[in-house]
Computed example of a mutant assay.
Amino acid sequence: MGGKVSSKMAAPAARIVQAVRPRAPLIKFPKRQDIQRPNAGEALKAFAVNVAPHSTPPPPSSRPPVPLTPVSGTPDSLASIQLLPARYRRRPMAAEEMEYIQRGGPE
């Protein structure tokens, strides 16, 4: 029995050290008990007063809009799906399974 410590002996010692160490919270939340909560009606009135009417146009963006371009690659078509190996194809659904999905699950 030399200077080596077996893992069976070290595990209980580690638990004792962890138990003695004081717990430090990782997250601190602010105390909100002193803050008054606004009434929903008052908040809506204040919001309506501060919001400008909808007739004003939005501010112009810093860059012009870019037209959408299709992504390059193989388009999805029936031919491309038929060329897939059977293991990558979607399995056919039974009529009972389709009815089950259409009605929204179990009754």
Rank of each mutant, 00 (worst) to 15 (best):
V17G: 09
Q102I: 10
D34R: 02
N50H: 03
A40C: 01
G105P: 01
P12T: 03
S55K: 04
L78G: 06
S72G: 11
Y88I: 01
Q33P: 00
P70F: 10
R32C: 04
P92C: 02
V66N: 09
R87M: 02
M93Q: 11
A86I: 05
D76N: 11
T74R: 10
K4Y: 13
P58C: 00
F47S: 07
A79W: 04
P12D: 02
I27Y: 06
A86S: 11
V5E: 12
R90H: 10
K28L: 09
R103C: 01
Y100Q: 06
K28N: 10
G41T: 11
P22G: 04
Q33R: 07
A43N: 01
E42S: 12
A52P: 02
T56Q: 10
A19Y: 01
P30V: 00
Q102A: 15
G73I: 06
S6K: 09
A94T: 15
A10M: 15
A13P: 00
R103G: 00
P22V: 02
A24F: 07
L84F: 04
S72F: 03
Y100W: 14
P64W: 00
E42F: 04
N39M: 04
I35G: 00
N39Q: 10
K31C: 03
Q102T: 07
N39G: 09
P75M: 06
P22T: 03
S72I: 03
L26T: 12
R89S: 08
I27A: 08
Q18N: 13
I81D: 07
N50F: 03
E99D: 15
Y88E: 14
P59C: 00
T69C: 08
V71M: 13
E97C: 01
V5D: 09
L83R: 15
L26D: 11
R15G: 09
Y88G: 01
S62M: 08
